[in-house]
Design a protein around this nucleic acid. Structure first.
Lengths: 201, 201
DNA sequence: ATTTAGTTTAACCATTTGGTCAAATTTATA
DNA sequence: TATAAATTTGACCAAATGGTTAAACTAAAT
């Protein structure tokens, strides 16, 4: 997101990311980004020509960060027994710190499932070492048979969903308490790891 | 959603739901709803006064439908062994037919986590028979110990996430093929049931 | 010091958009 | 049938909003 960029340009990108990820394309006002970046609205157009182009810059960057993070942790060489717990921990932490980006990505992708998916294709998820590992362990009979694609999605589901469903979980299960919710997410990590291990071993 | 409502009113609600759930509050134009409903834009205001009020009507209704559906299947008296598979099947089917509403709800809830959550509180998730059942089976040692809240979220995660992440899954794992994706969702049902049973029994 | 290129700003514009209103039309009531 | 009430429409309005432009300012190059 930063390579030889002006300080102003970076301020804009930071502000735009903040506003766009929280309010989406339709809900975002250029003026609000300008305020957030503490610059004149015209500067937004000076650097990015249009709302659409600024949005695309942010969206690509965010999608890349999100999928890149997945790649980083699923693609490591580590053994599965330590890798799966690490995946759950790392990704849970990441999501708790960035609770907006998942819904942002899914939402805008639904509205515009176009070209930008090249980013996802580019990353080539199926080539992650994780997939090979699962296949090997299943072949060796060390693990109950399961297609790596499904296990992959299962792990992501179990870690991502509780974060994006925060408002519903808080209201429905945590008596509206933010503290209880955070505690729930915290204890969840070990429970999810346990759940997965019980299911596959 | 319909009780003594004018035909026009119902047309509006139907159209509004369609547009709002796909484009969100910010991305929706009153004119588009009017077109979709094949009526004059002024009629929208005649029946619902403002965009905000029309939106709230739709949002409440959709949230109620969504959570109500959860209640319906988690609250039944059935034995867990047949109930859990039924939950997965019923909810997966429902979500495949209504792929927009989850993201819609989560997105708008994030933007406005206000009062409307009373609907969720009202439904009183924790009172579902499911929760009692889990506690009982765990007590009796029939099931590995797990808090029902976590199992509840696990089941929802595994069924909901793959539907809302469709664009990413399609691009990243299904070579962009819609057919492969549908097949994936289809075979997933049994796999998820298996996964859950392996984890808890 | 002067010029030049890059950066920033304020004022302004055109379009979009939610919303209003009075007139027209339809439906119900007397 | 005449009248009143409810429904529907088209024209219109004011505010919001993305975008433009020319001028002002800054910093580097000559």
């Amino acid at each position: 997101m930063n390579e030889q960029k002006t300080e102003t340009e970076q301020q804009i990108l930071k502000a735009a990311k903040q506003v766009f990820t929280r309010k989406g394309f339709g809900g975002t006002r250029m003026q609000e980004i300008a305020n957030e970046a503490k610059i004149n609205k015209s500067l937004l157009h000076y650097y990015f020509r249009s709302k659409q182009l600024l949005f695309e810059a942010i969206f690509k960057d965010t999608l890349f960060e999100f999928v890149g993070k997945i790649k980083l942790i699923f693609n490591s060489e580590e053994e599965l027994i330590t890798k799966i717990p690490k995946i759950v921990h790392t990704y849970s932490d990441y999501l708790q710190k960035n609770p907006y980006i998942v819904i942002f990505i899914l939402r805008e992708l639904q509205a515009e499932p176009k070209i930008i998916l090249k980013i996802v294709e580019m990353i080539n998820i199926k080539s992650f070492h994780f997939f090979e590992q699962i296949n090997q362990e299943v072949e060796k009979g060390k693990m109950k048979p399961i297609k790596p694609e499904h296990l992959f999605i299962n792990i992501l589901s179990l870690t991502i969903f509780p974060v994006i469903a925060k408002p519903i979980i808080m209201a429905g299960l945590m008596q509206g308490s933010n503290e209880l919710y955070n505690q729930f997410l915290e204890e969840r990590k070990e429970i999810v790891i346990n759940f997965i291990f019980s299911a596959i071993y």
